[in-house]
Simulated scan of single mutants.
Amino acid sequence: MNSHKRKLLTIVTEAALESTLVREIESLGAHGYTITDARGKGEHGVRNAGWEASANIRVEVVCDAETAAALAAHLREHYSRNYAMIPYLSDVEVLRPEKF
Rank of each mutant, 00 (worst) to 15 (best):
L17H: 00
K41L: 13
E24F: 03
E14I: 09
R47K: 15
G29R: 11
S27T: 08
A53I: 03
R58T: 13
L28F: 12
V59G: 00
S19T: 09
R47V: 07
E66N: 12
D37P: 03
I25E: 03
V59Q: 06
G29K: 05
E18T: 11
G42S: 05
A65P: 08
C63N: 08
N56D: 11
R47I: 08
E26R: 10
R47S: 11
A53N: 14
L21R: 00
E66Y: 03
L21A: 02
A49E: 11
D37A: 14
S54Y: 00
T10P: 09
E18I: 03
V46G: 03
E26H: 13
H44C: 04
I57V: 08
H44N: 03
R58F: 05
L17T: 06
S54H: 01
E60P: 01
E43S: 13
A55G: 10
K41M: 15
A53C: 12
A68V: 05
A38V: 04
T10S: 15
I25F: 05
G45V: 10
D64N: 15
W51T: 12
T10C: 13
A55P: 09
G42I: 07
T10L: 10
I11R: 02
T34Q: 00
V22I: 15
G45A: 07
T20E: 15
T20M: 11
I57R: 04
A55I: 01
E52V: 14
A53Q: 14
A16D: 12
A69E: 14
V59N: 04
T67G: 08
R39V: 10
I11G: 04
G32A: 10
L21F: 12
A16N: 10
I57F: 05
R58D: 03
L17M: 07
R23N: 08
C63D: 07
V12I: 15
G32L: 09
G29D: 07
E14F: 06
W51K: 13
V59E: 01
D37G: 13
S19R: 13
K41P: 02
E43Y: 04
G45N: 04
H44E: 03
Y33I: 01
Y33P: 11
T67P: 04
K41E: 14
I35E: 08
K41T: 14
L21T: 02
D64E: 15
N56A: 05
L21K: 01
L17A: 04
I57L: 07
Y33V: 09
E60H: 02
A30Q: 07
D37V: 10
A30L: 05
I57G: 00
A65M: 06
A69W: 01
L28S: 03
V46A: 00
I25H: 06
S27E: 12
N48Q: 11
D64L: 09
G42Q: 00
G32I: 07
A16H: 12
A15Q: 10
T10Q: 13
T34Y: 07
I11A: 09
G32M: 09
N48H: 12
K41R: 14
L28T: 04
N48A: 15
A68E: 05
S19G: 01
N48L: 10
I35H: 12
A53L: 12
I25L: 03
G50Y: 02
I57T: 02
E26W: 07
T36G: 10
N56G: 01
S54K: 02
C63Q: 01
T13W: 05
